[in-house]
Design a protein around this nucleic acid. Structure first.
Lengths: 342, 342
DNA sequence: CGCTAGCGTGGGAGCGCTCCCACTACCCAG
DNA sequence: CTGGGTAGTGGGAGCGCTCCCACGCTAGCG
């Protein structure tokens, strides 16, 4: 990369044009990959750009072009604590990788208060981003609708209901529940309980559905006493497990809808003197670090988190450009990772 | 917030000026909090802004004002895997909170390849951010120097050496090592080993120094056979522990410079049939989720990660505005969190 | 009572792009 | 040989701000 002559100030498109002996329009066309440029001009411009070390000014571009080359990734802070935290980091990783390739900026927005939420809504209204990625939306979250109203391209991670109108990338949560229960049933377990996430989240309902389908497939009767709702936290998992043990002491397996809740359940089981997996088999969801470090290591249903991030970004980019090669609503498969707890 | 009449397009500063019956300049002054505005004008403008639901256009502002209201948080991806991952999330949390209050955008940049690094350097050169936050810099990292050369305000998380010229926020890594060893010595341990991070990172050298100082304070002799270098990974921790056990089977305590390495060490200890803490006491650093979930739960030195993020952002904002109320180089205290492993 | 000093103000001149219109050159069909 | 394309191009007109100069006005000074 060549250094520009005049110290400090960056070369402008105009200077590139002068050096290449062409007009501003031509330079702009080359930069934006327009086909209507002769090879000769293209070569001259490319050379001038290289020589000057020219980099387009984003602000000017955004102002003139009415687009920002930036995408917001929105994470409601309340959730950040609930989910196994590495989840978000993996999402970010995937999103970041995909956006970098498209030369888009990643604007990270953590929303932790009503005030910050309003500020973000203003952001959106001010058209400061080309698109929005929303993570972990609750069924009653108004943000996706706001985004639709403003006609800003958006992709959700997870959906709010079966009939989600907004584009989304989700993992196969029903399948997750099903495969966990299948594993437990194959291991000879007959009294399989579940600890669910907050049931106002579709993801939690799906995993519960999967659990029920799994039971049906295995020819086991559903028993509502074996279902305890929690909130994706460790403490919630512990409480739910205690409850289950009280209601149904003869249970011999638990499907927890997250690793973190499984960790909580593990504690409650130990307190109750139950051995894992001998007395009670345990399966979680996420395949997080917590799972690997539990004692015994936790069997868990892995979701392709980073991949979800990637795909979200890809779908969003297509929504922005208007291309619709990829379907707008995707469900990615999950995979059972067997360890020692089940 | 009022809805603007003409659907779709946002009101401009000019329209606000017209409605308030003042000139463009005055509106601009009000928005930017200039003192040179009469109360009457200020009131009229504020009302017009509210009525129109006006939000300034960031691109125009950036173009005209030669500043972007955006700050980049740079995370080298190779590191992201090494450190206990929640570390970064906590940093992000702190940074995000502080920036939100200042109405600055947070641009997250993960750098995972040479190509992406170059792209980021171009970014910097193109003045696309007002300042840069750099996380987990190695001693030989050229990025901080590049940033200085370009005269872009920057704050590091951690420093590259004792004589770091760039502004930084670090935690008291020497103190971390010292307090861990003090705890071990007080518990009657006499053969205290350490597993270090990569010694090209100042943070790792500091923790090692702290370890040595701790030994001296406790009146214990240093023994190089009790020092094993690793790389902040679990696998590295395991290998280092095996090595230590081989070199010095009579050791009775280990200070691992990260929880993740402590987890690796734990595995190696179990393989060797050593009980924790009965045979060997173990202390880590980070106080991460891993520590809480180990068996037995790991005693660990907590660093105030989110707080570091906050402070970094605050210092950077001051560097940008030129205010220098807060010192530019800060070391935050650490704290021993005692659990069952030591 | 004139003269300066400052405050509050309006608005011109850009910032560096993209969009788009107009223009040239050239081609081919009629 | 002419008319109507079409590919390639130059450059004007903004995009919505901030900066800053110049203006009117009031107040205080000698």
């Amino acid at each position: 990369m060549a250094v520009n002559g005049r110290q400090g100030s960056r070369p402008t498109l105009e200077e590139v044009a002068a050096r290449a002996g062409v007009g501003r329009g031509t330079v702009s066309r080359v930069i934006n990959g327009s086909p209507r440029v002769s090879d000769r001009a293209k070569a001259a411009v490319s050379r001038a750009i290289a020589e000057l070390g020219y980099v387009p000014n984003r602000a000017a571009r955004a102002l003139a072009g009415a687009r920002t080359d930036a995408v917001a990734l929105v994470i409601p802070e309340t959730e950040a604590r609930l989910f196994a935290e590495p989840y978000f980091l993996d999402i970010i990783r995937g999103v970041s990788a995909e956006l970098a390739d498209a030369d888009k900026q990643l604007l990270l927005t953590l929303i932790r208060s009503r005030k910050e939420r309003q500020r973000f809504e203003q952001y959106l209204a001010a058209q400061r981003v080309d698109g929005v990625l929303l993570v972990s939306v609750h069924a009653d979250d108004p943000l996706p609708d706001l985004v639709r109203e403003l006609d800003i391209p958006a992709v959700l991670n997870g959906r709010r209901s079966e009939a989600e109108p907004v584009a989304y990338v989700d993992s196969d949560n029903v399948g997750a529940g099903r495969s966990a229960v299948a594993r437990l049933a194959e291991g000879g377990r007959r009294r399989i309980a579940t600890i669910t996430g907050p049931l106002d989240m579709y993801v939690a309902r799906c995993r519960l559905d999967g659990y029920r389908q799994g039971l049906a497939t295995a020819g086991l009767a559903a028993d509502e006493r074996l279902v305890a709702a929690a909130d994706f936290t460790e403490e919630g998992g512990r409480r739910a497990m205690r409850e289950l043990l009280e209601r149904c002491p003869e249970l011999d397996a638990v499907f927890a809808a997250s690793d973190v809740m499984a960790a909580g359940a593990r504690v409650a089981l130990r307190e109750a003197g139950r051995r894992v997996p001998d007395d009670v088999a345990l399966i979680g969801v996420d395949d997080s670090a917590v799972a690997r470090h539990m004692d015994p290591p936790l069997t868990s249903v892995r979701q392709p988190i980073e991949e979800m991030g990637r795909v979200m970004a890809r779908v969003l980019l297509q929504e922005i450009t208007g291309t619709t090669a990829e379907p707008r609503q995707l469900v990615l498969p999950t995979e059972l990772v067997v360890r020692e707890s089940a």
